[in-house]
Amino acid sequence: MDILKRNKPFIGLLLLCVAIAFVSPDFRTTGNFLIILRQTSINFIIALGMTLVILTGGIDLSVGSILAFSSAVSAWLLASGYHAGLAICAALLIGAACGLINGIFISYGKLQPFIMTLVSMTIFRGLTLVFTDGRPINAGENLTFEFVGNGYIFGIPFPIILMIFLFALAYYLLNWTRFGRYIYAIGGNEDASRLAGINVEINKTAVYIACGILSAIAGIILTSRLAGAQPTAGTGYELDAIAAAVVGGTSLAGGIGNIQGTFAGALIIGVLSNALNLLKVSSYYQTIVKGLVILIAVLIDQPFGRKIVMTLLQKIKGRKL
């Protein structure tokens, strides 16, 4: 029972996959499996940062705008003939700087994370629009840069490898380092953390910086796949990232949750869109279905929803006996 409880998101994912595999033969192929993973990589990489932020009791609505801004700058640098390495570094720097701004205002300015990142979401988007003049940027041909989004290593798409690497890194940070402990402590009780000698402000700022960098990495993958940048790229990505974290069992109140859950959450969302596409469900309905799935996942975590599930389980058991 305990194992079941701890891996709820994975069980949900498994059930979902089995159900879809029954109705759609296209779904069951290795190729499709890799496609899902690659499609999920962008959302999951952002969701990693989002999970860290949510664990500290915050939220970051500006991830989509950070993605677009860093994407635009890297595409412009490539188009201007600079080296791919420089474009990547610049994008990462922009992600870090945006995160730093969020973090400073939230930690030291004591602004509500929701408000601050709502503001920075519009400002970063505005900066992107100004920078691109509202037009897409064509990155031109650059083999090194294209590898990030389209390359393969041993037959596995590079974004998937990158995703797994970042997953492992975040897992290590959260579970094996002081920083990880501090994240959980701050999210659980900020005042107590401060009295325990934690520099709450610096650690929170660091988490927003990490979230900014991860958004920028997602931006680089996207730029590479599209060989260019869209000024409106990443719109609405914050919701997918929050959804992945929440479906994965992370509490919006902070202090409770983990990265593995977020991985399952991101995959649930990825598998669902993939399946709905394969089943040729119109994209209008897709959003509704996605919303319902999130609703169910979150409900199960509430006393109210749990009660319903429990009574249902009891009824099923009762019938069997």
């Binding site: 402990r181 659980g188 009780n189 107590a192 009295l195």
Partner: peptide
């Protein structure tokens, strides 16, 4: 409850919180 403990983490996590270094 107010600022002495982080109730949401474990006994272990609370005990070592100030001495992790």
């Amino acid at each position: 409850k107010g600022d002495g403990l982080v109730l949401s983490i474990s006994v272990l996590g609370n005990t070592t919180l100030s001495s992790l270094k």
